[in-house]
Write a protein that binds this DNA or RNA. Structure first.
Length: 905
DNA sequence: GCTCTGCTCAGAGGA
């Protein structure tokens, strides 16, 4: 039996005499959160605030080490407890089989356990700074890929050629030639091949490569290089002159064994494959020619893995920083010693290696701590997403759009096909009505129906319509496809903050931290845009900025056009420019405008995945694979590099340097997200509108305010607001202008102000029902909110769409906006025009927009509290805007009351 | 109570 719950009290470790001799123990008081009453309804869950009686759990032996790390408030799981009666009370204790897991909901990566074993500071430093582009790592990756290819039966030379080619860009940036890399990889691969050839591949040896594992019990996730007869095999391209495998390597393999145990397939042996070892070991007295080192994995080693994992989880629980004293690693031989000392010196952290240099100013350290915490909170939320893989039923996940279930694989053998490189293509039929967040190009978790304890593979989605097609390293029966969460964006935020503070230019930091004001020099006498003063001013400000310039662009004010003008002016001045934005769509829109203005295509490079980059920009997309020198030159020689901010944080782009970084959608970016782009340039230009949607973050924390908003507020003198809008009629823009832009947003021309539906070809305004005659109208369908839908309202909206169409408006010119996805679905069922959430509508517009408010009775809910979202909804329409909702509900709130008054005027 | 885009995923190593 297992015990799971929330710790309320932690006892001191003490020695007691038992029948086995003297043993140490520590007691925990735990309020159980697992289902203890056996009725299966789980009603004890979450009931941790003290009305349930705590139970006593005794941790014996080395588990007392984990007890020392335990704190009230932590979750704990103790497996295979022994139950006993003591003075009428049932108590629990660890048995020989037990594991004690602190904060099992916190998912620790196997590689993190590995680096913690080397040194806890190493774990911290890796997390903070990421691993920069360096040759040993790139080469190691290639050797691993070749290893996987060999296991899948691929021909060696073909594999090496392709894998080296794929790494072309990285190798080129590092200054390596393809030939020398191929030779080196071949030497490493020879060791692998020789070992594989020792009679093992001919028999049924049960090999498989790249095995993804997630452990709900132990709070560990990771990916094993390979399994052989169900036992973990890890490949290491480094040197190891000892007879024994390195301890941290053993721990890595043992961590995979632990997760295999949980799945009921015990692995008592681990293998480490050191590819540089053949020549070295040939001379040793053992006569062992093999690069493989086997070792046995017993319960003691597995316990050690779990205790190490607990150390990490406990440290992350209170977000403290490891000092290095947690382990007995020796600093004098450490590669990271200098980095370690600099980081601890700058951030004023205690560390075993000591400190070098002066601490950062207090304001910077506070900023670091604040964002570090916020980012780590975000990481927790990502972990919660992983947990849903097993905590939610398949149906719940499907309802949440996080999984496609009940896929029907084609009858064997048509459900799978071996493709190039020994990989697999898998196919299944998708139930008609199934929808999800998954998109073509995504990485997802494919499974036989159970993604955690069943057979699951990480796959790439190739096609997603009535048929599902995915590619995978190994075949699986394709019955279910789950969203696979990623910590990537969290990791990149952390490195962006690290780079900004620890590697950033002191001059830049002086402005960012308000120690001096942003400076401008009078470089430009030119007029860039002659029919719009604010746009022209924006270009001037950007060109003149020595630190940064801010362009505030309300809806329809020609932001994209201005961005293209700014980039052209900057490049004309001899600058190398990084163009970035939160979404791929915004990056491509800006590039499109740039190209339309005649900017030479051969000076542009678009960095991004094939699926992310829009089709019409693929011709300038940077192909990563190819000849190293050629690939590196393609990137280095471009005067404009365009990429999302997430890609700016990637290893390759992080190596680049620019004169200016221009970031669009800056108001939708977290501060670290913006820093990822801004870090790479001397000066920066941020374009955005903080009166529209803020950054999307999972946790409520300091990431919700964008750098754009902070700087606009602190330095209005460094900003220009584009005040002429080219989208909406006067009547439509009036509310937004008054409420959000101090009345300063105006139509650019009389034509814009006076535009009417009747100007559209074939439209007869008189054919509209009277309630829709005004450019802004309000309709109360007298509906009721049901969950996040309002079916009556949805029905009425379909009728309104029909009315517009009957008056001659083309379906393509009509858009419907609703606050909830559920209502979007409800309306979509009844009409063929575009229906979407506010969030997805940001950035686009339609001639006619109908907004569904859904709410009835009251306006409770976060979606209505953020008025910026409403601003977006109300500013998508050019000629006609119809609001549909419950008048009484809207009138109950002053802000919505004003909307009502405006619409019914 | 809600909105939801990014990114190959995670891991690849030095002495």
């Amino acid at each position: 039996m297992n015990v799971r719950g929330r710790i309320v009290e932690v006892g001191e470790e003490r020695e007691v005499e038992t029948s086995y001799g003297s043993r140490s123990l520590a007691e925990l008081s735990v309020v159980r959160t697992d289902d203890t009453d056996g009725d299966g309804d789980g009603d004890a869950a979450g009931d941790t605030d003290g009305d349930a009686d705590p139970i006593r759990v005794t941790l014996w032996g080395k588990w007392t080490q984990s007890a020392e790390l335990a704190e009230p408030g932590m979750d704990v799981l103790v497996t295979d407890v022994e139950e006993s009666e003591y003075r009428g009370e049932t108590t629990y204790g660890t048995s020989k089989e037990s594991y004690v897991v602190l904060e099992p909901g916190f998912l620790v990566d196997v590689t993190n356990i590995r680096s913690w074993v080397q040194c806890p500071r190493m774990y911290y430093l890796n997390k903070l700074s990421g691993i920069p582009l360096n040759y040993p790592v790139v080469k190691g990756t290639i050797v691993h890929e070749v290893f996987g290819d060999l296991l899948r039966g691929r021909e060696l030379d073909e594999s090496i050629d392709e894998r080296v080619r794929e790494a072309g860009l990285q190798l080129g940036l590092l200054g390596y030639e393809a030939d020398e890399v191929r030779d080196e990889v071949r030497r490493n691969a020879a060791a692998i091949e020789g070992w594989l050839a020792q009679g093992t591949l001919t028999e049924e040896d049960g090999w498989r490569s790249e095995y993804t594992l997630i452990s709900p019990t132990f709070g560990v996730k990771g990916r094993a290089d390979a399994l052989r007869r169900g036992m973990p095999v890890e490949l290491k391209t480094g040197k190891n002159t000892n007879r024994e495998p390195r301890f941290q390597d053993k721990i890595q393999a043992a961590a995979y064994a632990l997760m295999l145990d949980e799945r009921g397939v015990p692995a008592n042996t681990g293998t480490l494959l050191y590819t540089k070892n053949t020549a070295l070991e040939r001379n040793e007295e053992t006569g062992d020619l093999s690069p493989a080192k086997e070792f046995s994995i017993g319960k003691g080693l597995l316990d050690f893995v779990v205790r190490t994992r607990n150390q990490i989880a406990a440290m992350e629980f209170d977000m403290s920083v490891p000092t290095g004293f947690e382990a007995d690693a020796k600093c004098e031989y450490c590669f990271e010693k200098d980095t370690c000392m600099v980081v601890s010196g700058r951030l004023d952290q205690e560390s075993k290696a000591g400190q070098i240099g002066k601490p950062l100013p207090e304001a910077e350290r506070e900023y670091f701590d604040r964002l570090y915490r916020a980012i780590e909170e975000e990481r927790r939320e990502t972990h919660a997403e992983y947990r849903k893989l097993w905590e939610q039923t398949a149906e719940e996940r499907a309802d949440d759009d996080r999984a496609l279930i009940d896929l029907e694989p084609y009858p064997e053998p048509d459900d799978r096909r071996e493709i190039e490189g020994g990989r697999w293509e898998l196919r299944a039929r998708k139930p008609d009505d199934a929808v999800s967040k998954l998109r073509e190009g995504d990485v997802a978790l494919a499974s036989d129906g159970d993604p955690v304890s069943g057979h699951a593979e990480l796959v790439r989605i190739e096609r997603l319509d009535d048929e599902v097609v995915v590619t995978a390293d190994e075949p699986v029966t394709l019955r279910r496809l789950d969203v696979y969460p990623s910590e990537l964006s969290v990791d990149r935020m952390l490195t962006a903050v690290h780079d900004a503070l620890l590697k950033g230019d002191p001059d830049r930091k002086d402005v960012l931290f308000g120690r001096r004001d942003p400076e401008f020099s009078n470089r430009s006498e030119e007029t860039y845009i002659d029919n719009n003063d604010a746009q022209d001013e924006a270009v001037k400000l950007a060109v003149d900025a020595d630190d940064f310039a801010l362009v505030h662009g309300p809806p329809g004010t020609g932001k994209t056009y201005t961005i293209a003008q700014i980039i052209r002016a900057l490049v004309a001045d001899g600058n190398r420019v990084l163009l970035s934005a939160f979404t791929n769509r915004a990056v491509d829109n800006a590039l499109e405008a740039l190209r339309e203005q005649g900017f030479p295509t051969d000076e542009i490079v678009r960095v991004g995945t094939e699926n992310g980059v829009r089709e019409d920009m693929l011709d300038v997309r940077l192909e990563r694979s190819g000849d190293p020198n050629d690939r590196a030159a393609a990137l280095r020689d471009a005067s404009v590099v365009a990429a999302t901010t997430a890609t700016c944080g990637s290893r390759v782009v992080r190596e680049q340097a620019f004169d200016v970084a221009l970031v669009d959608e800056a108001s939708q970016l977290t501060e670290p997200g913006t820093l990822a782009a801004v870090n790479l340039a001397e000066t920066f230009v941020l374009v955005g509108d903080h009166e529209q949607l803020p950054p999307v973050v999972r946790a409520e924390n300091d990431l919700q305010t964008s750098l754009f908003e902070r700087l606009v507020t602190d330095h209005p003198e460094a900003s220009v607001m584009l005040d002429r809008q080219y989208r909406m009629s006067q009547r439509i823009q009036a509310f937004s202008s008054a409420e959000f832009y101090d009345g300063e947003l105006r139509p650019a021309t009389g034509e814009v102000a006076a535009q009417r539906l009747s100007q559209l070809p074939g439209v007869d305004e008189n054919a509209l029902p009277s309630e829709l005659r005004d450019p802004v109208s309000f309709v109360d369908p007298d509906g009721r909110r049901v969950g996040n839908t309002n079916p009556t309202e949805a029905g009425r909206i379909a009728e309104l769409v029909d009315a517009y169409e009957a008056a001659g408006v083309a379906p393509d010119d009509i858009g419907v906006i609703a606050p909830f996805r559920a209502q979007v679905a409800e309306i979509s069922r009844r009409t063929d025009v575009t229906v979407d959430t506010v969030d997805r509508f940001q950035g686009s517009s339609k001639e006619v927009v109908i907004v569904s408010f859904v709410a009835s009775g009251s306006l409770d809910g976060p979606i209505f509290e953020d008025h910026r979202r409403i601003n977006v909804a109300l500013t998508r329409a050019k000629k006609a805007l119809t609001l549909v909702g419950d008048a009484d509900a809207l009138a109950s709130d002053p802000f919505y009351r004003r909307i009502l008054d405006w619409a019914r005027r």
